[in-house]
Design a protein around this nucleic acid. Sequence first.
DNA 1: CTTCAACTACAAGAATTTGCATAGATTTTT
DNA 2: AAAAATCTATGCAAATTCTTGTAGTTGAAG
Lengths: 225, 225
Amino acid sequence: MQILVVEDDNRISNFLIKGLEEFGYLVTLCKNAEDVLAHYMHVEWDLIILDIMLEGMDGVQLLQTLRYKKVYTPILMLSALNSVQDKVSALDYGADDYLTKPFHFDELLSRIKALTRRQQYQQQETPKAELTFGDLHINLEQYKVTLGTEPVELSPREYKLLIYLVENIDKTVGRIQILNAVWGITFDNHTNVVDVYISYLRNKIEKGDRKYIYTVKGVGYMFKI
Amino acid sequence: MQILVVEDDNRISNFLIKGLEEFGYLVTLCKNAEDVLAHYMHVEWDLIILDIMLEGMDGVQLLQTLRYKKVYTPILMLSALNSVQDKVSALDYGADDYLTKPFHFDELLSRIKALTRRQQYQQQETPKAELTFGDLHINLEQYKVTLGTEPVELSPREYKLLIYLVENIDKTVGRIQILNAVWGITFDNHTNVVDVYISYLRNKIEKGDRKYIYTVKGVGYMFKI
DNA sequence: CTTCAACTACAAGAATTTGCATAGATTTTT
DNA sequence: AAAAATCTATGCAAATTCTTGTAGTTGAAG
């Protein structure tokens, strides 16, 4: 689930990103409205969280522009004020929901769930806590991976990568695709972090001679039992 | 057990919060009806305690609005007057119980117990007052923790944190999640209070070499026997 | 079958982040 | 006023992340 956060206050954006990531969302931050239009529109976001108050073009203007451009991604507006006027204009211009700061994180989560319900049933109709692939066990609640009975110590990034591969089991996923999903949207394609982390993962979960991660030359990687 | 108190008189709210926390409830205060609708509705409260007299939108109006919005959380109304009219309209509009100030705390407690009985049997078929994890005993009624036979002196915040971790036993809880549940609403993630209090707790309950609180790197903490 | 360019694997280490302890400032309670 | 509790700030060691550079692999053209 990819969420774009448009917010120029670092304190708030940090809080949002960290919190949402704790709950398994992939979050990308954009600090101003102009950049959203210039660079972030070609990505298919599941949700956009948009602050009303922004330097330069403000949130409502961006909202208007997006809807004018026929972007129908669910949009959740954030505002510091509980101004009725703001709320009305936001909803008038096509926002899907509206939340005033500060809020309980639970509340944000439940609204996100409501707004992305359409997509959700595909991914998590029954959120399983335990996944098993041969010897490999992944406990999603405990963030714990074991190989047979042996625990596997994965760093956060390694874990995230494994989860992504596993979610796309039997499908080849490209490097850029992985980069987007695991590292967040980035325009840097002169990096080989993906290769490096695939290598780390292999060292940790393919200690036996069982193979899980297959290289698809020229394309990317595939997780397979 | 999470209780929301809606009350604008500080004297009364302090009294309620302190008293309820002594009996192990997690209490959140909201000072006006508007904020309840704006910020607190999407949290799954076990009980809402609602003063009839409030600045702005009053308790009965809020009650009506909540029920109209299909919020079926048990609601206990508080009133300064023993007005039959108030009582009738409160119960008419869907309050579950009604209490006039001043009241004996015992009475409030027994009504809370009655109102939350429905949920209780789901969570704790036999509502245990005493939780035991290895050497660690937590007496919820007496707000007392012992390690073996040795009493453990916890500050209120430490206790609240412990209870939250224990309620989520075997599940990893993130820092933001903890911050929200134990410290209340905040946008501040440039704080390390959670870490500090985890450390305090560990010092107090892991005096032997038994471990209870596990760090999940990059994510948060997990309570485990 | 050999060659070679493109692709992949991974070691080493620099840079950054994280978790934790400690000290002390501030607030609340007694 | 004293004590307790809460929270901030800081430093540091260890873990993590990511870059760079090199060696190895692959597979298609000759």
